[in-house]
Amino acid sequence: MTETYLPPRQQPRQPPVPPWTYPAPSYLPPEPPKPKRRLGRGAVALVAAATIAAAGVGGTVGALVAGDDGAAAPTASATTTSDTKAVDVSSIVDKVKNSVVQVNVRTANAEGLGSGVIIDASGRILTNNHVVSAAEELTVTLADGRTVPASVVGTDPSTDLAVIQARGVSGLTPAKFGDSDAVHVGDEVIAIGSPGGLQGTVTTGIVSALDREVNVAGEEQRQSPFPQARSGGGSTVTYHAIQTDASINQGNSGGPLFNSAGEVIGVNSAIYSPVSGPDGSAGSVGIGFAIPSNDAQQVIDKL
């Protein structure tokens, strides 16, 4: 289901900057394509605002490519060597793309979508709680284009995670989960999801920070993550996230963040956006947050 980050109803007194956006589900009507840019039919589908996806769209993974030290070689026999090599993104994507799905949500008067990752061959799928929490009808679109019905197995609103079950399927390709405690700042990451309804979109980037505390209002509150700006009842979602410079956009919520070995090390769930539209829509500015895979595995076991 689509994810959107609703703008805070109150602005924090200090500092006067916009808070992290929470991917609270919202269903937006389709918008016409912008001039000089053609989008596929699914691109203008109602998409949940800013989810966290984790990597620069189409970005090259240049952070680990060794560069020339700039010294001029005095003879033709001098050579430059490197101990690092670029990550082969295309190979990793070929390996993991079938484990990523699009989650489609329908309510009484709206539709939305998000992303998810397959965790076993029988069709259990991990996604964000905010993607499916308001669903009255739930389906999943697999990487091969099939759309099948699904149901919610369990949710954990406190960590913004949920497990759903795709029905009538078998032999699916589950993702391999990695150790998020072994992640380092500067590691290259790959995200696959359905931003703007464009299923199977691949983005790349790096881990820009670790153990970043993210506080967002729960579904009953959906206001500013700053304590002094909150009002009313409702739960609060708090977790220590992997921060990435990923290009994350509406529809990426619940999708996986892969490391360079093709292992899931995070679940994209929120972004920081200094500007949001009147309808709560927001876009990536290169600061995204993913729930660590080790935390997600604990929730999976519990659910």
Rank of each mutant, 00 (worst) to 15 (best):
Y27P: 01
P8Y: 03
P227I: 04
P30R: 08
P12W: 02
D301C: 01
V163L: 00
E136R: 12
K97L: 08
S77N: 12
D279W: 02
S276C: 07
S82Q: 10
G58Q: 09
E263I: 11
G196D: 07
G56I: 15
T244F: 02
I206Q: 01
S269K: 06
G234L: 05
T173I: 01
T2S: 15
A261K: 15
D94R: 06
N259G: 01
G168E: 04
V153E: 09
I118N: 04
D211V: 02
K85M: 03
G234D: 08
V237Q: 09
P32S: 07
D295K: 11
K176C: 01
E188F: 07
A241V: 02
Q297G: 11
Q243F: 06
G112Q: 02
V87A: 12
V216F: 04
T204W: 08
L113D: 08
G233C: 04
T107V: 13
S231W: 12
K97D: 04
D120S: 03
T81K: 08
G205Q: 07
V61R: 07
Q297M: 14
Q221S: 13
N252R: 03
V169M: 08
A241F: 03
L172R: 00
I271F: 11
V131S: 00
V183N: 06
T81L: 00
V163R: 00
A166Y: 05
H184P: 03
P274N: 11
E136A: 08
P33D: 10
S235M: 09
A43C: 06
V103R: 01
L257G: 00
K36E: 09
N294K: 15
N109E: 14
Q243S: 07
S180E: 00
G205I: 06
G116V: 10
A71L: 14
G168N: 12
T204M: 12
V100P: 01
V96W: 04
A282L: 02
T60G: 13
S90K: 09
A72V: 14
G59S: 09
Y27T: 10
V105K: 07
A66K: 03
G171M: 06
P25S: 11
Q165K: 15
A76E: 13
L161F: 04
T2P: 11
D68T: 07
V47C: 06
R222D: 07
Q298H: 13
A55H: 04
Q250E: 08
I192L: 08
A49E: 13
D187N: 10
S115G: 11
G123C: 00
P157Y: 03
T4I: 15
T238N: 13
A175F: 09
P256Q: 05
R230P: 10
A270H: 07
L126P: 03
A229F: 01
